[in-house]
């Protein structure tokens, strides 16, 4: 599957799982794209995975202090992979505090590089086999937290975020 098809399929499937998908935008245009969608100012307590602040310096509004995650209203993480067929983001935190950035705040923003989108879950098996250590605490995220436990009515935000925004980006050409 060509990259453009993977991006298209990923976008369609992630939206079907109730995620919002932004972009794809060039890395330099990402801040603007996200700013428009999230109106960052409305999330005064944003916590970002520490590594992101160096890769995307415009995330200066977010804290990298994982201890604040319990009180944050926006969690920002980067996905290591995307899975097109299921619209899934694969996040690889290295400890529980980093995992909680994706789970505790009511909104989760995931940055995903389009080149990292694979076609199907099977394509990850080999990557996982090579990198046992890296994947040890992985979290697959497909849409926001949901429940259908009362009368099978889909309700978002049961335990984790009720809103999931995925920002697709690619390197500037």
């Amino acid at each position: 599957m060509a990259e453009a098809d993977r991006i298209m399929l990923f976008t369609e499937r992630a939206k079907a799982a109730s995620a919002e998908v932004l972009g794809p935008a060039p890395k330099s245009g990402l801040a603007e794209e996200i700013g428009r969608a999230l109106s960052a100012g409305r999330h005064p307590r944003a916590v970002a995975h520490p590594s992101l602040l160096t890769i995307h310096p415009w995330l200066e509004f977010a804290s990298s202090d994982c201890d604040l995650v319990r009180h944050a209203d926006l969690g920002i993480i980067a996905a290591r992979y995307g899975i097109a067929r299921t619209g899934t983001c694969v996040y690889e935190p290295s400890n529980s505090a980093e995992r909680l950035i994706a789970l505790l705040p009511p909104t989760c923003l995931i940055l995903l590089r389009t080149a990292d989108i694979v076609a199907d879950i099977g394509a990850l098996a080999a990557a996982f086999d090579d990198r046992h250590a890296g994947v040890a605490q992985s979290l697959f995220i497909t849409g926001p937290s949901r429940t259908g436990d009362i009368e099978h009515v889909l309700t978002l935000g049961m335990q984790g975020p009720g809103r999931l925004v995925i920002a697709l980006w690619h390197e500037d050409t």
Partner: peptide
Amino acid sequence: DWPSAMSILRALPPSATGQRMSSYVSFLT
């Protein structure tokens, strides 16, 4: 191993809840 785990993850959510993938799949080591 991982390939066998991925085979199960491909079959489980559609069978359980009719989703392509469940919202959260947590790996714990």
